[in-house]
Amino acid sequence: MNPRVFILAIATFVVGTVELIIGGTMNLITEDLNIPLSAAGQLITVFSLSFAISAPILMHATRSMPRKPLYLTALFGFFLSNVLAALSPIYALLLVARILSAACGALLTVLSISIATQLVEPAYRGRALGIIFMGISGSLVLGVPLGMTLGNAFGWRAPFWFIAALSLLAMLILSRQLPQVQISPSVPLRVQLASLKDSKIVSAQLISMFMLTGHLTLYAYFTPYLETTMHLEAGWLSIIYLVFGLAAVTGGGVGGWIADKWGPTKSMLFIISSFALVMASLPFATKSLYIFLIVMILWSALSWAISPAQQNYLIHAAPGTSDIQLGLNTSVLHAGIALGSAIGGIVVERASVLYNPWVGAIFVLFSLGFAIFSITRPVREKSVARLPIES
């Protein structure tokens, strides 16, 4: 495996970390900027929505630009946006910084996927994609505990300074290590979107979208949920988030083992059903910290166990455009994060954070419904040559 693929995965980890980093410092931001909890939650929604929209648009707009200079330029823009976030004196400016950060991060993530597939031989392409997606998923689960640790020690602006510093470090490394990559033949946007006419593929993409919608309905507001239900202090919150992150990363590996043993379809049905059940049972476990930790570990592990099975399923469901589907899936994932954090904010504002686990579980059941619908549809797409991932 080309070691540069691991460097790209580290870069995507840095980019992805900033998305949910707000979750661990939400209470600090609300106090400092004098905004309601739901408004702080929308900082996640805006980031994820901007990411989902920007990814295909920016890749299409920059399709003829050399990859290495474009990558480094986007990384520098990501650095500046995090500096702006760290310096923001008001909520509106922080919101703008999050939008800019998401746009640069979206371009970097999809470029990383595209470049990684060109750095390796075709036989290693799947492994290269797996390494990049490990960076993405790892950042999403470890961003909150990282933000919480730095935020509690040095204030909510510290995580943004930390990410800015890591961005500069990544720029220095990649400016030397990243080779000049040949621009792939441009695939018109209409060709990419044409595959979404197939109901089997559309519903397959919606599996992960509604899975993450349900998950983020609670996870985006997990800190206030723990403070309200269990009255935990900052020290315990940091421990819980660390355990959550480790369980989520482990869950990805377990999910890969399940997918290999049972196949993608059975794995998806089992994981999604279990996830809905565990999430709905979380409120009943809050009376005991030890029982809650057990249930939370299961919830965390299952949250990312779906990824290997779902990505394998997309490859089988769309053999001719599987690279494109995996690229589009990054936008779909962030759309689910945006929707979940938005819905979670509505529940917090109009009812109580106590209801977020049950509302989230309902959306996970939608994911299960789309999985059943997709699995029962026939494969229409012929097994043709795989198209490049770029737009």
Rank of each mutant, 00 (worst) to 15 (best):
I294E: 02
W304I: 01
L326F: 08
V191C: 09
P145S: 10
A55V: 15
R190G: 09
P36L: 13
H231Y: 01
A74V: 14
N82L: 08
K261E: 00
V187M: 14
G253V: 00
F78P: 07
A234S: 12
A39R: 10
A318K: 01
S367I: 03
T45V: 08
A259Y: 00
Y221M: 04
L172E: 05
V249R: 03
S274A: 11
H60E: 14
I29Q: 13
M230F: 01
G340D: 05
G126K: 02
P66S: 15
L314Q: 04
S101G: 15
A170F: 06
E227V: 14
I113Y: 13
L282Q: 03
A305M: 02
R157T: 09
V295S: 12
A305F: 03
R176A: 03
G126M: 04
G345M: 11
A102T: 11
I90D: 14
A170T: 05
S203P: 06
I240H: 09
S38M: 06
F270K: 07
F284G: 03
I271Q: 05
A106I: 15
L298R: 09
C104P: 11
V278D: 02
F275T: 03
I201R: 04
A9M: 08
I173G: 00
L218D: 06
M148P: 11
A285I: 08
D32I: 14
S238E: 13
W161R: 00
A317I: 01
E121P: 04
S38F: 10
D323V: 12
L242F: 15
S137T: 12
S208Q: 07
L196H: 04
M65D: 13
N152Q: 13
E121A: 07
Y241G: 15
A158W: 02
R377H: 00
Q192C: 14
L289E: 03
S50R: 05
S139C: 13
M171W: 07
S139W: 13
F133T: 13
P179Q: 08
W358N: 02
A234M: 10
A40H: 05
P56Y: 08
L80Q: 00
H215C: 04
L168M: 00
P56R: 11
L72R: 03
A335F: 14
L196V: 09
L168D: 02
F222C: 10
I306V: 05
F373H: 05
L232I: 12
M211W: 04
P308M: 03
K68P: 06
S267W: 05
G320M: 06
F133Y: 07
T45C: 08
V144A: 10
E390S: 15
L108K: 09
M148K: 07
T229E: 07
F210W: 04
R125A: 11
I240R: 11
L70V: 12
I315C: 10
T73C: 14
M171V: 09
Q325H: 10
K68L: 09
F370H: 00
M230T: 03
S374Q: 00
L193D: 12
G263T: 01
M268A: 09
P357E: 06
F275P: 02
F275L: 08
Y71C: 14
S203T: 03
S54L: 13
S367P: 02
L333D: 01
P185S: 15
L293E: 10
T286A: 01
L193S: 12
Y71S: 10
A248G: 11
I324E: 05
K68Y: 06
